[in-house]
């Protein structure tokens, strides 16, 4: 197989600046990700993890450099096509669900990139759409919640709904922006376990950001550290050390977390 097909993401000298902000949000990003890999991005809040993920999702504008996602070059000024957007799934930190709608309805929203743009407005979906929703709900383990309204669910359950919505897209690349930071430790671990299992089952590529070095080391194959809008390190998960962690977060505040890594 040639290299273009085997590469899920590639960035070459990517820079971005939010208007009116002095510090650049992304400086000189240069890396690529093989298909099927699980990558963790770690770094303090405001370091640029979310900006990078939004860029890969095709929702960031006015960056420069070259970015290719799933073999398609992104354009810095226009949104990707519907089909390309559907190929990349995004899991938001704050779940981003329509609270008043049912679980199944929210999962069906993940199909909107595939459905007819007019028929879907009248609630008409194909058998393919319904099947994809059923499978996504099954994979996310929320079959018993399908008819409940989202505003009646717990945080962990909501995150599963958000994951199911993403799976309904049938994406090839799964991006997750701090998917576990709003969850208790047990749900956090379960969620990452679920994500990595699904990644394997559906043969996707997974990139997630997190503040938890121990979980990142356990679930990812590769860890990229980001500090002040630049890459601080890019390492195989097994080579990830407490020093690297302290390098991006600073020394004192994180001694505790760093110890967990060593231990």
């Amino acid at each position: 197989m040639n290299t273009i097909v085997r590469t899920a993401i590639s960035l070459a000298d990517v820079n971005h600046h939010y208007p009116g902000v002095i510090q650049p949000s992304l400086t000189g990003f240069d890396f690529s990700v093989e298909r099927g890999a699980t990558i963790a991005l770690i770094g303090p809040s405001g370091a640029g993890k979310s900006t990078l993920l939004a860029l890969l999702d095709g929702r960031l504008r006015n960056w420069n450099g070259a970015v290719s996602v799933l073999g398609n070059s992104l354009d810095a000024h226009t949104a990707p096509s519907r089909t390309d957007r559907a190929k990349t799934g995004f899991i938001f930190q704050e779940f981003a669900l329509v609270e008043r709608a049912s679980v199944a309805r929210n999962v069906m929203n993940g199909r909107l990139g595939h459905t007819g743009p007019v028929a879907s407005l009248f609630g008409r979906f194909s058998q393919l759409d319904y099947d994809a929703v059923d499978e996504a709900i099954e994979d996310a383990g929320i079959a018993e919640l399908a008819d409940k309204r989202v505003d009646s669910l717990s945080g962990g359950q909501r995150q599963r709904v958000a994951i199911a919505r993403c799976l309904a897209q049938e994406p090839e690349l799964l991006l997750a922006d701090e998917p576990i930071s709003n969850l208790d430790p047990l749900s956090a671990e379960k969620t990452l376990k679920l994500l990595t299992q699904i990644r394997q089952k559906r043969d996707m590529t997974l990139v997630f950001s997190s503040h938890q070095p121990d979980l990142a080391k356990r679930f990812a194959d590769r860890i990229i550290g980001i500090r002040a809008g630049a890459m601080a390190f890019d390492t195989c998960a097994s080579d990830f050390t407490a020093e690297m962690y302290q390098d991006v977060y600073g020394t004192e505040a994180v001694a505790d977390n760093a110890l967990r890594l060593v231990g």
Binding site: D57, G58, R59, A79, R82, T83, D84, R85, A86, T88, G89, F90, F92, E94, A96, L97, V98, E99, R100, A101, R105, N109, G110, R111, L112, G113, H114, T115, P117, S120, L121, A162, R165, C166, Q169
Partner: peptide, 30 residues
Amino acid sequence: VNQTPVDALESAGATLLQKLRYGIWPQMAP
């Protein structure tokens, strides 16, 4: 209206009208 669910639909490949119909309208209808 909370913008993040609308962003999620954008990310999934929804058109402008689909975003209105399934992201914005259900939030404000009641």
